[in-house]
Amino acid sequence: MDEENLIERLKRNDERAQEEFIKKYSGFLFNVALQILRRRDVAEDVAEDTLLIGLQKIKDFKGRSKLSTWLYRIAVNRAKQVILKEAREDSLKGKLVLMSQQTSFVPEEYRKDAKKEIIWRGMDLLKDREREIITLVDIYGLKYEEVAEILGIPIGTVRSRISRARERLKEIIEERNFFDTEISNK
């Protein structure tokens, strides 16, 4: 109901609704873009572009899915475009390195926390699909039903995919002594 109301107001170019829309989805879209792109600057650009596209194309939004699903798809497509563009430019320069494979960047927030940094670097080694589902379920706390809608997959697939992704991540960070202190203290 709230979402319907927000969409209606956005379609009327209500400025308050636009502010509300940006506040509500900027974090989600930024984190989604960050986990795909692994770089803060481009993630910011992708999140901004997605919000802008969302505001401009809201009149075309038919409400067949949730607003978050629609925006998520726009963000993922934009992020993929950025990766392809950079890959093309890199290949022209003679170095084919995908942005998602660059591991040098660690967000400021994680640098202060060793555990978070280990997880961030561990996630670098995950497949895109695995990182995607961990972002939605564990980092952003979405329910399986919501994730199933966003990704357009059955809920059973969400379950199996998140289980595998967690298991993989656990193995990776375990090698880096992630659990050594915490678990043994309990």
Binding site: E19, I22, L34, R40, L51, E109, K116, I134, K170, E182
Partner: peptide, 25 residues
């Protein structure tokens, strides 16, 4: 182990820049 990993992950949301709203508008 999974529960602990999950709890760390749940705190791993990165805040978007504060001026994002202004920039988009």
């Amino acid at each position: 182990k999974l529960l602990y990993m999950k709890s760390v992950l749940s705190e791993m949301q990165v805040k978007p820049p504060t001026d994002m709203e202004k920039r988009v508008l």
